[in-house]
């Protein structure tokens, strides 16, 4: 009499998904890494020292896992939250007070803070082990862009609750764009772009206006940041994460003494 798990593992459905027996022996532990989509990001074998926690701190992996948590909780929050002046604040209020699984917002916000911290720690580790040195120079550059995208993701998300904390933090942050050299209406050189006595760079045409979609943080900004936060930056980050992981493999795997 075969057991239930044997029946399942012998079934056509199971075998169509997993094309080999359980990874309990050497052969199948190798095969599983080659045939599973999620596992094929890894090499089949690695230096014991290279994957030691005391060496890697696992901070890159933790950052990626936090990115997944942010994606899942973020999608769930998008089902509920409406990015308009009328609803944004009250939707968040309801998530806090009445909505089932409103905990998703807490997870999302603390996950975002944690991700900023772990991405810094990852960079810190990579620097301290000199892992940016040849042949990994370019992957360090990709990593710096990902660090920047992480900060921008967090920054654009900061506005969405539409409370005092949100709009004033974004106001303070985006006021910097007002002082952009040449492109900000309060920046050095902006006065040079004048045609027939008419200023080309004003508070309705400068870099800050482009960022906010308005002269101050308003409904246009909320919409703009929402799209950046939920679509544009995550797409760019996903692409770069794929490149980052692929390059780790192509540049020789986890670093170690030569």
């Amino acid at each position: 009499m075969p057991s239930l798990s044997e029946i399942i593992r012998e079934s056509q459905i199971w075998k169509s998904i997993f094309r080999h027996p359980m990874p309990v022996d050497r052969r199948n532990r190798i095969v599983v890494m080659l045939t599973n989509f999620f596992l094929h990001l890894h090499p089949v074998s690695a230096k014991k020292q290279g994957i030691a926690l005391s060496y890697t701190w696992c901070m890159g992996g933790v950052t990626f896992f936090l990115f997944l948590i942010e994606t899942i909780t973020g999608v769930l929050l998008m089902f509920y939250y409406r990015p308009t002046l009328e609803w944004a604040y009250s939707d968040i209020l309801a998530l806090r007070d009445v909505t089932s699984l409103g905990l998703m917002r807490e997870l999302h916000r603390w996950g975002a803070h944690a991700m900023v911290i772990t991405v810094w720690l990852h960079m810190y580790r990579v620097f301290l082990t000199g892992s940016y040195k040849p042949p990994r120079e370019f992957n360090w550059v990709v990593g710096v862009i990902l660090l920047l995208l992480t900060l921008l993701l967090s920054f654009t998300g900061y506005l969405l609750p539409w409370d005092q904390l949100a709009i004033w933090a974004i106001t303070v942050g985006s006021n910097m764009a007002r002082a952009h050299p040449v492109l900000g209406h309060e920046g050095p050189g902006a006065a040079l772009l004048t045609v027939d006595g008419i200023d080309m760079i004003t508070n309705a045409s400068d870099a800050r206006f482009g960022l906010l979609g308005a002269r101050f943080v308003g409904e246009e900004t909320l919409n703009r940041f929402y799209v950046l936060h939920c679509v544009a930056i995550p797409l760019a980050a996903s692409l770069l994460i794929a490149i980052h992981f692929w390059r780790v493999r192509k540049d020789g795997g986890i670093s170690g003494p030569l």
Binding site: R29, H42, A46
Partner: peptide
Amino acid sequence: EALDSEKVLVWPDLVYT
């Protein structure tokens, strides 16, 4: 880091970590 150049299989050593 150079002491132990032993190679191990990623399943289970890394995947489980």
